[in-house]
Amino acid sequence: SFQYVPVQLQGGAPWGFTLKGGLEHCEPLTVSKIEDGGKAALSQKMRTGDELVNINGTPLYGSRQEALILIKGSFRILKLIVRRRN
């Protein structure tokens, strides 16, 4: 089963996490790295392996390109929903 975790990061880029996968690579869009001391790490809500399913209220369909555009369009606040295996 899965758990959906809301994450809100503040203060602008860099957000402190790296993505891998996506439709382009025929795999889920997941968090591959969280930078020590970065905003994602400080939130204590994101983990490597989390799947990104929503950015700023926009549902994602797995495209890494789409996710990067939405993330780049976030100035002060980035709201994410990640899906994690229980």
Rank of each mutant, 00 (worst) to 15 (best):
L23M: 14
V7F: 14
A40Y: 05
L19N: 03
L78V: 01
F75Q: 15
W15L: 00
P6F: 11
E24T: 08
R85K: 13
F2P: 05
Q8Y: 15
I69P: 08
I77D: 15
L19Y: 04
R76Q: 14
L9A: 06
L68C: 11
G11W: 05
G57M: 05
K72G: 12
R76A: 10
R85V: 10
Q8G: 04
H25L: 11
P6T: 15
E27M: 13
D50K: 02
R76P: 12
I69G: 15
S74D: 12
L70P: 06
E35R: 09
I69C: 13
I69Q: 15
V7W: 02
A67P: 00
E27P: 05
M46Y: 01
T48E: 15
I71V: 07
L68G: 12
K72W: 06
Y61V: 15
M46P: 07
G11L: 02
I81E: 07
M46E: 05
T18S: 14
S74N: 10
F75E: 15
Y61M: 15
L52Y: 02
Q10M: 14
R64A: 11
K39S: 07
Q8T: 13
D50S: 05
N54E: 13
R85G: 08
N56G: 06
R47C: 13
A13F: 06
G37R: 10
H25W: 11
V5P: 02
G11K: 00
Q44Y: 09
E24Q: 08
A40C: 10
G57Q: 01
I55M: 00
E24Y: 06
A41M: 10
T48C: 14
K20Y: 08
S1V: 09
E24A: 06
V5E: 13
T58W: 07
P59T: 14
R84C: 01
Q3I: 13
L29P: 03
M46S: 01
L70Q: 11
E27C: 09
Q3V: 11
G16L: 04
L80N: 03
G21K: 02
P28M: 08
K72N: 13
T48F: 10
R84A: 03
K45N: 08
F17H: 01
S1M: 08
I55R: 01
H25K: 13
L19G: 03
L70A: 13
K72F: 06
G22P: 07
T18I: 09
E51K: 07
L52E: 04
I71A: 03
K45T: 10
K45V: 12
F75S: 15
K79R: 13
L42F: 09
K39T: 08
A67S: 05
I71K: 01
Q3R: 09
I55N: 06
I77P: 04
F2V: 03
G49T: 03
H25Y: 13
S74A: 10
E27T: 08
L80D: 00
D36M: 12
Q65M: 08
L19S: 03
L9E: 00
L80Q: 06
I77G: 11
G49Q: 06
D36H: 11
R85I: 08
C26V: 05
I81H: 04
Q44C: 12
L19W: 01
E24M: 06
L9S: 06
Q10A: 13
G16D: 06
F17P: 04
V82M: 08
I81K: 07
Q65H: 11
E35P: 08
N56W: 04
D50F: 05
V7K: 07
A41N: 07
V82H: 06
G38P: 01
P59D: 15
I81F: 06
E66K: 12
V82N: 05
T58K: 12
L60I: 14
H25M: 14
Q8E: 15
L19D: 00
G57N: 11
Q8D: 11
R85D: 11
A13C: 08
A40T: 05
M46A: 03
R84G: 05
I69S: 15
S32A: 14
G38N: 02
H25G: 13
K79L: 04
R64P: 04
G21S: 00
